[in-house]
Write a protein that binds this DNA or RNA. Structure first.
Lengths: 172, 172
DNA sequence: TATATTTCTTAATCTAGATTAAGTTTTTCA
DNA sequence: TGAAAAACTTAATCTAGATTAAGAAATATA
């Protein structure tokens, strides 16, 4: 555990700044101490597609780039002023060679991530846009206030205009 | 490793039979030695939605039910005659308490699963139905032959009728 | 090898959500 | 505190893919 703490670096990130940009290698896994981030890519039409959010106590990285040492297709941007703990791939690998506890820790986190991803895929298949928004709102009422609506629309898989329509309907 | 092999049970499953049914508790993680499975749920309209396939050398379970000891919303069905290795939650937990190697093994698998889930979500956002089919076909040409088309349509998130339309277009 | 069942196709009609465009409100920061 | 930028709304029009329905192939089973 002491080893683990020794290899962690703390960093402040201002709102709208990036911890990862498309085309770069993702060299760090980040633990969010404070603030909020979104990861997004830019599709063929030039539109930003938000694929994840991260808030306090979550880990955030582009796993594909981080694990496979490939150029990232994602951008990770702070949506508000933030503090993260960074851990580099090389140093994490070293610790993962021998530490039972750290392996357990990340295994358990990844199990939870898997469950969340699976639920999200299930929701995307099963729910209409309106239902997706209502479900998200129900489980994360405070979070809906915390981010611009157009990012949420993008995360839920539809346009900001459509989200506006849903809200108008709801409040009428 | 010997401990690990000791707690594994082998089982034969005939085509169309289930290793998990909706409403039951998922007590096992399954390693597929031979054959093919699909996991699906039944939506509000009574339509089967395939959310995953599993083939040789993959692990397959309902992680949500398996980890959280909740009733499963999923069915897991063999699409052809199959052989699996089963490992119960209780026994797996025991081994995971102390084994560095087994923790590493599952951590690494889950990292790969995370990457696959992430890519799938990205594809679902970015590609039209036609592009989803073409991409899937490109990377898994043999697998497309292996399962009924209506299951693939369901996995890709559209109707069998629409898949038929895509294929007609492609071959004309 | 005939019949039942499962899978696949075609085509007409319908709808959730996209697109475009213009205007309004809110936030930022000089 | 006022101008510029960012975020949000409304409404008209358009389209990918759903729905429905009926028939044709393919596959399984007796």
């Amino acid at each position: 555990m002491q080893d683990f703490l020794n290899i962690i670096e703390s960093e402040k990130i201002s709102a709208k700044h990036y911890i990862l940009k498309e085309g770069h290698y993702c060299n760090y896994n980040h633990f969010i101490v404070k603030g909020c981030f979104r990861s997004f890519f830019i599709n063929k039409k030039g539109i930003e597609k938000t694929i994840n959010f991260g808030i306090e106590d979550w880990w955030l990285t582009d796993f594909d780039s981080f694990m496979n040492r490939t150029q990232s297709q994602l951008n990770i941007q702070a949506t508000e002023d933030a503090i993260v703990l960074k851990i580099s791939k090389a140093k994490l690998d070293l610790i993962l060679q021998n530490s039972l506890e750290i392996n357990k820790y990340f295994r358990i986190i990844l199990e939870r991530v898997r469950i969340a991803d699976q639920r999200r895929i299930q929701y995307m298949f099963n729910l209409s846009g309106e239902e997706l928004y209502n479900t998200f709102y129900e489980y994360n009422p405070e979070f809906v206030q915390r981010i611009p609506q157009y990012m949420l629309a993008s995360y839920l898989g539809f346009t900001p205009e459509f989200l506006s329509k849903i809200r108008a309907k709801k409040h009428s």
